[in-house]
Design a protein around this nucleic acid. Structure first.
Lengths: 198, 198
DNA sequence: TTGACAATAGAACGATCGTTCTATATCATG
DNA sequence: CATGATATAGAACGATCGTTCTATTGTCAA
C-alpha cells in the first residue's frame, strides 16, 4: 500500500508552505513545493499555487515572487476580555498582529533590557520583564524613562513641573528624586513584554 | 554635481538590503540590490555580497539563497537595569530576540486578547494590555487563565487545593471564586504585552 | 461501460537567476 | 608621473526559475 493516494487539500498545501517559510525564512520555489507536498511535476505546483492565489492566501509582488497575504506567525485578535467576550470557537476575529512590527518602531535606535528590582511595580513592570527602550528620544511628562541615578541605571516616571524635572518611582517605597546637574537619560520605555512558562 | 561619488560602505549596503527585506518580506535579487545601492552591474553586487558573507552578516542556505544571519528586526539585549547597567554607548551586548518567535510557541492554538478591567492589576496586567492565550492547554496551579464566570470572560489565577479549584483575582476588590459545575476555561495566559506611545 | 472532470506527469520554453570573466575609472602612494 | 589597489561596468555563461503545453491516470455519475 505504499502508493496510497491521499486527498490533497488547499489547507494541507498551505500548511506545508507555511512550515517551509517558518523553517527557512523564505518562500519555497516551485520545485521545493513539489517536494514538500509530494508531487513530481512543477505544473502540479502551478495548479495548486493558482488555487492559493485565488483563495487570497498567497499573493505575488510586482516581480512575480510569492508571499503570504498575512504573516504566518501572526495571531488572531479575538476581542476583549470581560464583557460578552466571544468564544474562540465562534471565530469572530478582528485583526492580526506581528509583534516585531507592532512593538518596534525604530529597530536601529532601540534595545532590550531585562528588568531588575521593583521600582516600577505599581506601573505593572515586574522583575524579569523585558522592556524596549528607544534612544535619542526626548521624554515627555509622564513617560517612563531609563536614567542613571547615583551611578545606577533605573527606570522612573519622568515628571516635568515647569522648568523642574522630577524622577518618580512607581513604588511608594522609593521617594521621588530631583536630579542635580547630572541627569543622564538613556531612553524612553516604549513597551513591556512578559513571558510566562519559560 | 549630480555625479558626486559617495563612498560606499558595508554598513550602507547592509542597511539598504535590510530595508528592502523589511519592506518586501524577502531578500532582493542581485539586480534589485544593484538598484537600491546605486550600481549598474551585477558583478559589483557580487563583490559586495561576498563582503557581507565573509563579514558574517549574510549567509547562504543549501540552495544558494541569501538570508540574514540575524533577524534584522531583532533588538540587542543590553543587560539588566539597576546594578551597574552597561551604558548603551559601550555596546557590550549579549543576545538577540525576535518577539514573534520568543512569545509565540504554538501559533495555531494561540490568539490575542485586549484586556478590559482591573481584576489582574496586582499581577501587572493592566487595561489595554495584550495577552497571548494558548488554547488546549490544561492549567497548572498558579497559572493565569482565561475563564468564563457567570457568563463573562475574565482572567484569574488558577489555584488547585487538593481536588478543589479556586479562581482568584489579582485584585483584593474581587473575592475568590469557587466554580460550580460549569467552569469553562478558554486557555492559559502565556505572555503579556504593553505598548506605550501608540 | 462510457463519458466528463479533476489531478498529475513530463517535456519544452523564454526569462531571469547568480557567477565569472575582461576592461575601465578612480584614488592614494611613492 | 608611474604604480598598484579598489571599485565599477558590461558581456557571456550555465543553471534554475515559473509558465505552458500535451498526455496520462483516477474517480464518480450516467
Amino acid at each position: 500500500m505504499s502508493s496510497m493516494k491521499v486527498k490533497r487539500t488547499l489547507q494541507d498545501v498551505e500548511k506545508k508552505i507555511t512550515a517551509f517559510f517558518r523553517d527557512h525564512g523564505r518562500m519555497p520555489t516551485y520545485s521545493e513545493i513539489a517536494e514538500i507536498i509530494g508531487v513530481r511535476s512543477k505544473s502540479v505546483v502551478h495548479f495548486w499555487v493558482a488555487k492559493l492565489l485565488s483563495a487570497g492566501i498567497l499573493q505575488k509582488d510586482a516581480k512575480g515572487f510569492l508571499s503570504f497575504l498575512r504573516n504566518p506567525r501572526a495571531l488572531k485578535l479575538a476581542g476583549e476580555v470581560c464583557a460578552g467576550f466571544p468564544s474562540p470557537a465562534e471565530e469572530e476575529l478582528r485583526d492580526i498582529i506581528s509583534f516585531d512590527e507592532y512593538l518596534i518602531r525604530n529597530p536601529d535606535t532601540s534595545f532590550l533590557l531585562s528588568v531588575t528590582g521593583d521600582s516600577m511595580i505599581d506601573a505593572g513592570i515586574q522583575e524579569k520583564d523585558l522592556v524596549i527602550v528607544e534612544k535619542n528620544k526626548d521624554p515627555k511628562d509622564g513617560d517612563i524613562i531609563l536614567a542613571e541615578v547615583d551611578g545606577n541605571w533605573t527606570m522612573k516616571y519622568f515628571r516635568r513641573k515647569g522648568k523642574m524635572v522630577i524622577l518618580e518611582a512607581a513604588n511608594s517605597k522609593y521617594p521621588p528624586i530631583v536630579p542635580r546637574m547630572d541627569l543622564r537619560i538613556a531612553g524612553v520605555i516604549m513597551a513591556v513584554v512578559r513571558k510566562y512558562h519559560k
